[in-house]
Write a protein that binds this DNA or RNA. Structure first.
Length: 552
DNA sequence: AACTACTTCAACCGCACGTAC
DNA sequence: CGTACGTGCGGTTGAAGTAGT
C-alpha cells in the first residue's frame, strides 16, 4: 500500500480522469470526494499538524460535515479520512492500549451474539472503536487458529445468542442489498448450486419452517456469518488424488453438512435436555475409513462463522468429505465441541498448519464470489426459497421419520449419487421456468431457480435428485473432464481449496463455457452430472458458501 | 548486526443507506 | 422520482514494529 498516493480519481475508485472535466463531479480520490477541481488529497498516515487542524476544526464546527473540513481548513484530506481519523484517534475519551480481560470477554460474547458488527460492539465498549475491535478480533482469530483453540471458549454458547429473529431479519435485508450486485457479476453458475444446497438442506431436515429460515439466512450469507472467518477457513481437504483414492465423494460439497444433522427423532428427544435454542453440534460418529480415526472435531463448524473450526486442525486427516454417513449428534453435548477440540490430541500437523497459513496469506479469490453468491438473492427469492424448502421438507419428512437414520444416510448417498453420477443430471437452461412443485414427489427434489439476463429472478428450473439411488453404494467414477463444471471444480480444487494457484486457465475456460451461454444469451448450467464422479458446481463446494446448516 | 517471519494496527476501499435537492 | 452528497460500516491492505534465527 502506498500512502503517498495523491491521485485524483473519478467516483468510487474508478480512476478515470473525467473529474476535471465535469463541473458537477467533484474530484474524487479513491472514494473520497474532494471539493474543487484537481485538488490533491493526501493519503497515508496523519501528521500531528494535520491532527491539530482537524481537532481545531471539530472544536469550532463540531463533528459531521466532514467534507467541509477540506473547504474550511488547509487540510488536504477527504471527509472520509477526516471522520475516520477523528473517530479512531482524535475524539476525546478514546481508550488506548490493550483490551482488558473484561473487554475481551465482552467482545467474544458480543461477537457470538452479533457477528462482525464492529460498530455495534463498539457502542458497548466505551472508548473503543470499531476498528480496534475488528483488529483485535482478527488477531484473535489468527492466534487461536495457530494455537489450535476454538474461536469461542467453551463457556460461550454461541448458539444461545444466535439467530434472534430480529437479528436474522435485519441481516438478511442488509446483506441482500449489499451482495446483490456481486451476485449479478458472478454469472449464473453459482446461483445454481446455491439452490442446490439449499434444497438439500431444506429437504433433509425435519423442521422445515425453522430450518428454512436459518438455512436461507445462511445461504444468503447473512446472519452472523463472517466472510472474514471464511478467509481463515483452512483447506483441510484431501487432495483430489486423495479423494479419488479414498473413494470418498467430493469432499467439500456443502451438502455434506447434512451429515451433521440429527435425525428428527433424536432431535426431538434431546431438545428438552438443553436450552431449546442450543443447537450446537456435538461430534458425530466418524469411524469409517479412510478417515476412520479422525476426530469429528475436524469438521466442527462454528455456527456463527460458516467456519470449519480450523482450531482443530491438528486432528488426523482432512475430514470434510470423509465423514461417515452416519448421524451426528445434533443436540448440545455436555462434552461440547470446544471441549472436544481442546482435548483432541495434536498429532503432527505441520502440513495442515502450513496450509492454513498459506490460506490466510493467499485466500483464494473465488471465496468472495462464492460467498457472495449465497448472499445475493432478493427477498422475493428468499420467500420463494422458504416456501420451497417447506414443501420439500414436508415431502421428505415421512421418509425421514419412518427410518430416520437410514433415511438420512440414504439421502446422503443419494446426494452423492445424483450429483456425481449422470443419472440425476439435469441441464438447466437459465431462463426456463419449470414449476418444480409439480414435479415434487418423495423421490424427487426439484431445485428452484431461474436466472435472467439481468441477474437472478424468482423462478424455478429443475434439478432433480432422485431418491431411487437410496442405499446405493457410491463408487468413484471418472470425471468427464470436458465438462465445464468439472473443469471449474477441478480448477477450484487447485486454487480455492488449497490456496494455491496452479493454473487459472482451466478456470477461465470453464467459466467461459459455463457462462458463455448459447446463442440466445441463455446460459446453461449443469446441475447433475453427466458422467462419472463429477463434483458439483463450483459454488456448492466452496468453503465459503457452505450453508451453515450445522448452526441449527 | 542482519535478515526473515510474523504481528499489529492505521488507513484505505467499496458499498449501502439516508437525506437533501 | 432521480441524482448527488454525506456518512457509516465492514473488509482489506501494507507499513511499522517485534520476535526469532
Amino acid at each position: 500500500m502506498s500512502y503517498t498516493t495523491t491521485t485524483v480519481d473519478s467516483d468510487d475508485g474508478m480512476h478515470s480522469s473525467i473529474h476535471n472535466e465535469s463541473p458537477a463531479a467533484d474530484s474524487i480520490s479513491n472514494g473520497c470526494r474532494s471539493r474543487g477541481k484537481g485538488s490533491v488529497l493526501k493519503k497515508g498516515p496523519w501528521t500531528s499538524t494535520e491532527d491539530g487542524i482537524l481537532i481545531d476544526y471539530v472544536k469550532k464546527h463540531g463533528e459531521g460535515n466532514w467534507n467541509a473540513v477540506q473547504k474550511h481548513t488547509s487540510l488536504a484530506r477527504c471527509g472520509k479520512s477526516c471522520r475516520l481519523r477523528w473517530a479512531n484517534h482524535l475524539r476525546p475519551n478514546l481508550k488506548k492500549g490493550a483490551f482488558s480481560q473484561e473487554e475481551e470477554q465482552l467482545i467474544v460474547e458480543m461477537h457470538a451474539k452479533m457477528g462482525n458488527k464492529w460498530a455495534q460492539m463498539a457502542e458497548h465498549l466505551p472508548g473503543r472503536t470499531d476498528n480496534e475491535i475488528k483488529n483485535y478480533w482478527n488477531t484473535r482469530i489468527k492466534r487461536r487458529q495457530r494455537a489450535g483453540l476454538p474461536l469461542y471458549p467453551p463457556e460461550i454458547h454461541v448458539e444461545d445468542f444466535q439467530w434472534s429473529e430480529e437479528y436474522t431479519k435485519s441481516n438478511i435485508i442488509r446483506v441482500d442489498r449489499r451482495r446483490h450486485q456481486d451476485f449479478l457479476q458472478l454469472g449464473n453458475s453459482k446461483a445454481n448450486v446455491l439452490f442446490d444446497d439449499l434444497n438439500f438442506a431444506a429437504s433433509l431436515l425435519p423442521a422445515a419452517s425453522d430450518l428454512s429460515d436459518l438455512v436461507t439466512c445462511n445461504m444468503l450469507g447473512t446472519g452472523p456469518s463472517s466472510s472474514r472467518y471464511e478467509s481463515y477457513m483452512p483447506p483441510i481437504l484431501p487432495s483430489p488424488k486423495q479423494i479419488w483414492e479414498s473413494g470418498s465423494r467430493f469432499p467439500m460439497c456443502s451438502s455434506n453438512i447434512k451429515h451433521e444433522f440429527q435425525s428428527p427423532e433424536h432431535f426431538q428427544n434431546t431438545a428438552s435436555q438443553k436450552n431449546p435454542r442450543s443447537c450446537s453440534i456435538s461430534p458425530c460418529d466418524v469411524d469409517h475409513p479412510p478417515y476412520g480415526n479422525q476426530h469429528s472435531s475436524d469438521m466442527m463448524m462454528i455456527p456463527d462463522s460458516h467456519t470449519v473450526t480450523y482450531g482443530m486442525l491438528p486432528t488426523s486427516k482432512p475430514s470434510f468429505g470423509a465423514v461417515k454417513l452416519e448421524l451426528p449428534s445434533f443436540q448440545y453435548s455436555e462434552t461440547s465441541a470446544f471441549d472436544q477440540w481442546k482435548t483432541t490430541p495434536s498429532p503432527p500437523h505441520s502440513d495442515l498448519l502450513d496450509s492454513v497459513d498459506a490460506y490466510i496469506q493467499s485466500p483464494p479469490s473465488s471465496q468472495v464470489e462464492e460467498s457472495d453468491c449465497f448472499s445475493s438473492c432478493d427477498t422475493g427469492l428468499l420467500d420463494m426459497l422458504l416456501h420451497e424448502a417447506k414443501i420439500k421438507t414436508s415431502a421428505k419428512h415421512s421418509l425421514l421419520m419412518s427410518s430416520p437414520q437410514k433415511s438420512f444416510s440414504s439421502t446422503t448417498c443419494t446426494t452423492n449419487v445424483t450429483q456425481n453420477v449422470p443419472r440425476g443430471g439435469t441441464l438447466i437452461k437459465s431462463g426456463d421456468y419449470e414449476d418444480s412443485q409439480k414435479n415434487l414427489t418423495c423421490s424427487e427434489i426439484t431445485i428452484p431457480m431461474q436466472l435472467s439476463a439481468g441477474g437472478i429472478s424468482s423462478a424455478f428450473a429443475g434439478n432433480v435428485v432422485k431418491t431411487e439411488e437410496f442405499d446405493q453404494v457410491w463408487e468413484p467414477k471418472r470425471v468427464d473432464t470436458t465438462r465445464p463444471d468439472v473443469l471449474l471444480a477441478s480448477s477450484w480444487l487447485d486454487q480455492g481449496c488449497y490456496g494455491i494457484v496452479r493454473d487459472t486457465s482451466s478456470m477461465s475456460d470453464a467459466l467461459a463455457l459455463l457462462l458463455g451461454g448459447d446463442d440466445t444469451g441463455n446460459s446453461y448450467m449443469t446441475v447433475g452430472s453427466s458422467s462419472g464422479q463429477t463434483p458439483r458446481g463450483v459454488g456448492s463446494c466452496g468453503w465459503t458458501n457452505m450453508p451453515p446448516v450445522w448452526s441449527l
